[in-house]
Simulated assay, not measured.
Amino acid sequence: MIFCGTASRTCGAGAVRPRSTHPGERYDDTLFVVFKTVSYVEHEALTATSEVVDTGEVMIFLGSHFAITVRHGQHSALREVRARLQQDPDLLRLGPSSVLYAVADRIVDEYLRVTIEIEQDVDEVETSVFTPSRSQDIGRIYQLKREILELRRSVAPLAEPLRLLSGRRLTVVHEDIWEYFRDVHDHLTKVREQIAGFDELLTAILQACLARVTMVENEDMRRISAWVAIAAVPTAIAAIYGMNFKHMPELHWQFGYPIVMAVIIVICLVLYRGFRRNGWL
């Protein structure tokens, strides 16, 4: 197998470590494609530090008579791809292009599976935010948004290479397989739309959560203010009689003490009832 000089240098310098460059490059009669792989990280409960998405890479050098893959990440194994090709002689007859298609199809299918799992996490967060009991959801929402952003960064760069593979005449890609790549591109478009929907929904959930926190804080402030107002009544009356004035006739009156206590109780009850009626208590 002979590569052109540029492709050989790229393989030696970049294929042994993860790449973050453009996912598709062409070197004369050799095509170099980088696929970002993703897998869903299982967790008992979503927290503010939960890892939801793990990423890796599969790099493919494709020529007219060869296909070389380099993998990074434990979830980038291609045993299923090999088994599928062996079970489909018609696809395998299309040459190395069938390997490129099978890898792309398998990775995009994994994108779909990951979005299904993430959808459950989004539903869980949404349900938690709108439950009557208080919960600390803001950190979980931010964490899930970060994980979805990581998923988007893995998925989005693949759109343009798949579009080119499905409609551009490349000498290293068999013409009979262009339709297959169109199908993969359609699936990728669906994944991107789902990810965008998750992000928009989480933004709305976050805004609702912040609004709920503000509302709860306002309710707490009203409740505190109501109790302070009620407590101010006996405090004020006790302060008046605690100044030890000499000329306070009711101090020597037989019914002075019970009347003062009754006044305090009545005023406090009236205030309590008023606050309850207005929803402050």
Rank of each mutant, 00 (worst) to 15 (best):
W280D: 05
L31V: 08
P234Y: 05
T131P: 01
P89E: 10
E150G: 09
I230T: 06
G167A: 08
I60A: 00
D121P: 01
A77H: 15
I265N: 04
Q86F: 11
T171N: 12
F181C: 03
R106S: 14
S50D: 05
R153E: 06
Y257C: 12
I205W: 03
V114Y: 01
V129Y: 02
T235N: 13
R113L: 12
E126F: 08
Q254L: 15
D109K: 01
R79P: 07
G63F: 00
V191P: 00
S50P: 04
S133R: 09
T6Y: 10
A262D: 10
L78E: 07
I107K: 00
I195H: 03
V129R: 01
L202V: 05
E160P: 04
G56S: 04
V216N: 14
V33G: 02
P132E: 02
Y180S: 05
G167Q: 04
V114A: 05
K246L: 13
T131M: 14
S50C: 08
I177C: 08
T214F: 09
V99E: 07
T131E: 15
V129C: 05
I138K: 09
V52S: 06
I237H: 08
L281A: 06
N218Q: 14
G73K: 05
V70C: 10
F32R: 02
A262M: 13
M261F: 10
I240E: 01
G279I: 01
T69M: 05
D28P: 01
V173F: 00
G256H: 04
F61R: 10
V53T: 08
R71T: 14
W253P: 04
M215L: 15
K145A: 09
A226Y: 05
C11A: 15
D176R: 15
W280S: 03
A13D: 07
A104P: 02
S76F: 11
I60Y: 02
E42A: 08
C4V: 13
A236T: 11
K36L: 02
E124Q: 11
A239T: 15
A262N: 04
F35W: 09
F61Y: 04
R93Y: 11
D176T: 11
G256C: 07
I148R: 00
G14I: 05
H252M: 13
V266N: 04
Q120W: 07
L112H: 06
S97A: 14
M248T: 12
